[in-house]
Amino acid sequence: MELDVHVKVRPDIGAVLGRLGPIWRRELLSAGATAARIEIATHIRRQSRFHHKTVERLNKRTAGFTATATGHLEKGAARITSRTYPDHAVVSVPIAGISRAFRDLKIQAKKAKCLTIPLSSASYGHTVREMQRLGWTVWRVKGRDLLMGRLGNDQAQMLYTLKKQVVVKKDRNLLPSDDSMADAINGAMATAIRAALTKEVS
């Protein structure tokens, strides 16, 4: 999944970029893209500290199991990359669902009939099939959108609620603001221009 995000380039930098050949343009854009990569990674890492509500709620609710956060935001932040072309740059953020920084995210069941929303620390971060592989017996409660499960002779517990679709509300805070991105990118390109000119003079 790719998102097109357009960042306002400062007029003076834009004028320089427009007159440069492709090699120099790519060089300056690489500085801008790296600044964007750093800005996004730092922001997501900071945000990830506030996104453990689900696992904290489930841990309070579930006796006998303590789930740890899947860490999908911090893992994704550690894998952000950029690549630069002569006329544009791409920053890849390998986090499923990151598009909800810009819009509500509607998730629908594709292969399965329903989505499974974890209700327990035991099922958090695991698919139903993985739970079964781990030795759980999982069954649907008749007439209800609920999956129960039991491990061995333990007491049965609610594992998942079933939904046809869920809408995860837009959260613009997942990614840096347009202004902070533009500041980082423009700042880096300006620094790269100054550094190159200084080197040329000396």
Partner: peptide
């Protein structure tokens, strides 16, 4: 793969602005 991609993107401009790496804990 992400590390290799980041290394391949190093140019004179990027190394000029950020000449070093810091090894730090990114994942718990």
């Amino acid at each position: 793969a992400a590390s290799v991609a980041v290394l391949q993107e190093q140019t004179a401009a990027t190394v000029g602005i950020w000449p070093a790496w810091e090894l730090t804990r990114l994942e718990g």
